[in-house]
Design a binder for these strands. Structure first.
Lengths: 226, 226
DNA sequence: TTGACAAGCTTACAGTGTAAGTCTAGGCTT
DNA sequence: AAGCCTAGACTTACACTGTAAGCTTGTCAA
């Protein structure tokens, strides 16, 4: 008797860490982080949950792997003119990647265990900043501020109901939650936005504020090289 | 027979949403978010898990409550001179609060369901910015950038092993993970920091970059009032 | 043919959130 | 005072989680 397609997705290949990670990524992208369970990942591969543990130490190890997959999607620009250009491209790419993988944002900055993609990402950042003339301290400050903006801004953006597609229900349900007498400014601002038919969040607003500030820092304090 | 102290903490009072939230907050502050379970919160109050559901819709509702408790700790300055001063004070207070409640940061921006403290926090922010002369759009941009920095920066800070107390082990274990040939800049930067005995992250670096940028935005584009 | 070994499977356990139903003590009406 | 109601806490149960421990089976080398 021929077993007629164990599950559905992949027919039957040798299990690999890579295959596990890709199955996990698809699951998480489609159904969110809370849907990620060892049993479900196994199911997607036509395999029992415990079989995964040959290739993955932990669930936490799996998640670390997923995060590194996401980071690897961030474009590291080698054609940039200067550090500012490079940091800008990198930030925008990271932002887009994080919007694609909505689940990743809260985990991103909050993981100590960094994979090879993350290492490369950071090294490239440091390279641009150091060669741009920033001291070691300034480099860390700049990196931290920029990445903070990337993660923090995107984290908010993913959960604020200000997007144009939410405008209609924001105008009704959202505003009802904000009594005008108690929270006049909040009420007014949200009303205005709802009238305007929602609003696309502008990631580059804060990004350019930071980049311009960094540029100014570099020109005023001329001392570079450590 | 006198029942000798059901659990330990509170002797026996009528259960309240407030008591539940405070027990939950203590649990989470002490043992982290993953230690938060309905059964354990109940235990801390000398009560069965299911009894909590009279005062709390969900575990998610409980967490929303905890977050609002945290937000309520943020000082909203009414003695500030101008919007810049107010935003600065507010950001620094928020940063300190988030460092006190390490578990809160990843959840903070990523919750749609906002409580009364959050509403007040946002309203106050909008009030300062609008009265400072920012348009509605600019107000949202500014708020988003500032809060993005607060959450994003703190999120990273909480998990980077660059703190002075980690300096020793960073110098050994950390650097070993960063091969100098593959990641030269990363390696160099971390070595330098380790030699310097660690480093206190400077939240106000990025904050002041943003504030100065916002100030400049305000003076160059003179048109205010919508 | 035999043995070893690795890849995947099975079972089991302690823990989770929570739906559904049950008890019980206090206060109300009569 | 008697009876009932009900709010607040408890009990049971279910489907699900991560993962420790051990088992089966297919493949290849000696």
């Amino acid at each position: 008797m021929t077993p007629p397609d164990l599950s559905q997705a992949e027919p039957r290949m040798p299990l690999t860490r890579e295959r596990i990670l890709h199955a996990g990524l698809e699951l998480v992208d489609l159904h969110g982080l809370e849907a990620l369970s060892m049993r479900r990942v196994g199911q997607a591969l036509g395999v029992e949950a415990m079989s995964l543990y040959k290739y993955v130490k932990d669930k936490s190890d799996l998640i670390d792997g997923l995060i590194d997959l996401v980071i690897a999607e961030i474009d590291i620009p080698h054609d940039a003119n200067d550090w500012k250009d490079a940091m800008r491209q990198r930030a925008i790419s990271a932002h887009q990647v994080l919007l694609r993988h909505r689940w990743a944002c809260p985990l991103m900055g909050s993981r100590v265990n960094i994979g090879p993609a993350m290492l490369g990402y950071i090294d490239d950042t440091f390279a641009w900043l150091r060669q741009g003339g920033f001291t070691v301290e300034q480099t860390l400050d700049a990196w931290h501020a920029l990445d903070g903006h990337i993660f923090g801004f995107t984290l908010q953006q993913l959960n604020l109901p200000f997007a144009p597609e939410d405008a209609a229900q924001m105008a009704v349900a959202g505003i009802a939650l904000i009594p005008a007498d108690r929270y006049p400014y909040f009420h007014a601002v949200v009303s205005t936005i709802a009238q305007m038919g929602g609003r696309v969040e502008r990631f580059e607003f804060g990004l350019d504020l930071l980049l311009k500030g960094l540029e100014r820092l570099l020109t005023t304090s001329g001392s570079s090289h450590d």
